[in-house]
Write a protein that binds this DNA or RNA. Sequence first.
DNA 1: AAGCAATATATCTCTTCGGTTATATAGCTA
DNA 2: TAGCTATATAACCGAAGAGATATATTGCTT
Lengths: 114, 114
Amino acid sequence: MDSSLDSIFSALSDPTRRAILERLANGKATVAELADPFELSQPAISKHLKVLEQAGLIRSGREATSRPRELQPDALKKISDWIGDYRRFWDQSFDRLDGYLSKVQGYEDDKSED
Amino acid sequence: MDSSLDSIFSALSDPTRRAILERLANGKATVAELADPFELSQPAISKHLKVLEQAGLIRSGREATSRPRELQPDALKKISDWIGDYRRFWDQSFDRLDGYLSKVQGYEDDKSED
DNA sequence: AAGCAATATATCTCTTCGGTTATATAGCTA
DNA sequence: TAGCTATATAACCGAAGAGATATATTGCTT
């Protein structure tokens, strides 16, 4: 299992996989149930599920003959936190930090003097 | 320019591109400045920038002979909103909605009766 | 106008991805 | 245990991605 930002973002870049996640937001579901809305083959869905699982976005259970999937929020939280660092760029309530940007500018290895 | 969830997530799935965004969070920068930290060729960086721009994550300016890039928060906000729909899965303060899940279950085009 | 600096585009290669069909595995059920 | 159901794995294919090098473009500077 990877669960890096790379693999999480990559997993989310596919619309089928995002649709699967949205379905799982309503509760756990079997592979067959997840496959139902799509015109894809069952192996294709299984592959998507594998990608989602390896990214840490879902996990598989075991119930008789089926292997129900369910959401695993950790990975989503991870990228949510990542995005959080940029929140100040669009969130008004962060904009009280008007001078923040200019103060931060060139604070690290970049000594540009514009 | 695309700016779909597909292209935004896809753009973010590459570590070089995320690093470029992080650099741009400190303010605008030229291509040369952005390329500096990496061991990649200049065309490779230009490609990454194109991907970021087409996803709506950055935009290019024009300043004499250089084309400085700067962050464009819209795309980030877009996926932040998307993730927001899942917030309840990890955020404690959302967990007062204990019954929420069961109520939502099967609320749309999905009429599974489990 | 010539030359240089900054950046973009073209072309090519290798790898990864998303899909397919065919087949294997695992657990019920008769 | 034979067969059915649910799912996974293998092998293959075409398209897209990420890199390289070579070359084109654009705007200063002299």
